[in-house]
């Protein structure tokens, strides 16, 4: 259940972004989660529900997109897409890699109601208040 500690960091990032845009309520956030981070989407949603209570993100939804692992072999430099339980380089047969993707958790976007909506037409998915 390390989802709760991830949710704490996530809430800070979401509220910072929301404050910068004068948001009054957060509806949805989109999260890219690397496979190696061992996040269970349902547990993440539950942690988010608990941690956002009493904030402008209360009741918001998390959309989790799983990011597969890609790696570079430290021995021969070959880039490849390992399975989470198999990191064998297809060229040299070693399992000794630098992880390139799939080991991070990225907040991609925050969908919210905002006072800026009326002023700025530049935002995708803008919603009338």
């Amino acid at each position: 259940m390390h989802e709760m500690s991830i949710a704490e960091g996530l809430l800070q990032a979401v509220l910072t972004a929301a404050n910068q845009h004068g948001a009054t309520r957060i509806e949805r956030i989109e999260l890219d989660v690397g496979q190696m981070r061992l996040i269970v989407p349902d547990a993440m949603q539950m942690a988010w529900q608990v941690i956002t209570e009493g904030t402008i993100a209360a009741g918001s939804e998390i959309v989790v997109v799983e990011v597969p692992v890609t790696a570079r072999c430290k021995k021969c430099g070959r880039q490849f897409a390992p399975q989470i339980n198999e990191y064998i380089c297809p060229d040299c047969g070693q399992a000794d890699v630098d992880i390139l993707t799939g080991d991070d958790i990225i907040l991609k976007s925050v969908v919210c109601d905002s006072n800026e909506d009326a002023e700025s037409g530049a935002n995708n998915g803008a919603k009338a208040q």
Partner: peptide
């Protein structure tokens, strides 16, 4: 509105 952020949630921890 949709705010595009693209920020690692693990930044603070890391």
């Amino acid at each position: 509105m949709k705010i595009n952020v693209v920020k690692s949630v693990l930044d603070a921890s890391d």
